[in-house]
């Protein structure tokens, strides 16, 4: 396992709380959007944007940058929050999320938002898009890597498995897929809507290198990325066990907050919880 300093972990934890506050504020301000899946993916996105990805906020289309693809586009609040905190655009702009004439569309739009790498909204297209990126990186003999975040509901989508086959056919070891295994999709638990288990075995059967981690443990997230980098000849799927709505007690594991913003009272409670967490650092 790689050496990861206490200081790095503390910094990432703190950043993740900042992103979660943005997510809550953005969706509250819009009175719509998808906080639950944004919060569950938050630690993965934080680790990538604040430690792993080689990107240049002053040159978002730098050709040699690593690519981050958000397949589950409805979770874009976490992406926008990370991009703003990373300096791709002003943090104040986050409050235009979902408003008329905003660069921060309700679902990601390629070319409009600095740093956004793919359009998403209809579930299940991001991994295929990532396969295309990884193929291009290899054709051009480049070192940049592709990281794709998928929802577990997206495992229902046939195209996800079409992409899985294509990625292993071409041995795309520069591609890492994170499956945000929060156990909930839009209107229920994944195992009630469309049972997924055994999920790791499915990805293994598609010839991927598969890791299962706690998606809220930065050491495990960073170790998984490290292992993906070392893995040759196969793409890596990281099944990240997460909690939908993670970070705000009354939102955790609640189906409702898949696609519902907080009320005014809930906003205060949520921010108070997150601020208390922040103060503890």
């Amino acid at each position: 396992m790689v050496e990861v300093s206490e200081q790095l972990i503390a910094g990432l934890k703190k950043k993740a709380v900042t992103l979660r506050k943005h997510i809550i504020r953005m969706t509250h301000n819009a009175q719509s959007g998808h906080p639950g899946g944004s919060m569950s993916a938050c630690d993965i996105v934080t680790a990538l944007y604040f430690h792993v990805l080689r990107v240049d906020p002053s040159n978002p289309t730098w050709p040699d940058r690593d690519r981050f693809v958000l397949s589950k586009g409805h979770a874009c609040p976490v992406w926008y929050a990370a991009l703003a905190e990373r300096g791709f655009f002003p943090v104040e702009e986050l409050m235009t999320f979902r408003k008329l004439n905003s660069r921060l569309q309700g679902h990601p739009e390629l070319g409009t938002t600095p740093g956004v790498e793919n359009a998403a909204g209809a579930e299940g297209q991001g991994l295929s898009f990532s396969v295309g990126l990884a193929l291009a990186s290899r054709m051009d003999h480049k070192a940049w890597r592709t990281y794709c975040v998928l929802g577990d509901g997206e495992q229902d989508v046939g195209q996800t498995w079409e992409a899985a086959m294509a990625a292993s056919k071409y041995g795309l070891d520069s591609l890492t897929a994170f499956i945000d295994r929060n156990g909930i999709q839009q209107e229920g638990r994944t195992e009630d809507i469309m049972p997924l288990e055994p999920l790791a075995e499915k990805w293994e059967a598609f010839n991927w290198h598969v890791l299962t981690i706690d998606g809220h443990d930065f050491r495990q997230i960073l170790a998984a990325i490290e292992e993906a980098h070392r893995t040759r000849g196969r793409p890596t799927a990281v099944i990240a066990r997460t909690v939908k709505g993670k970070g705000v007690s009354f939102m955790e594991n609640k189906i409702k907050y898949h696609g519902a913003a907080t009320s005014d009272d809930e906003l205060k409670l949520a921010l108070a919880e997150l601020e208390a967490m922040e103060a503890a650092f």
Binding site: D156, G158, Q185, Q186, E187, I193, M194
Partner: peptide, 26 residues
């Protein structure tokens, strides 16, 4: 397809539970 609540076909399932097939995001 994982949208039966928001478009209210869930009401049909309440009356006829064995006549609604939830097929997921597919």
């Amino acid at each position: 397809a994982d949208t039966t609540e928001s478009i209210k076909t869930i009401e049909f399932a309440k009356a006829f539970p064995d006549r609604l097939f939830q097929l997921g995001i597919a």
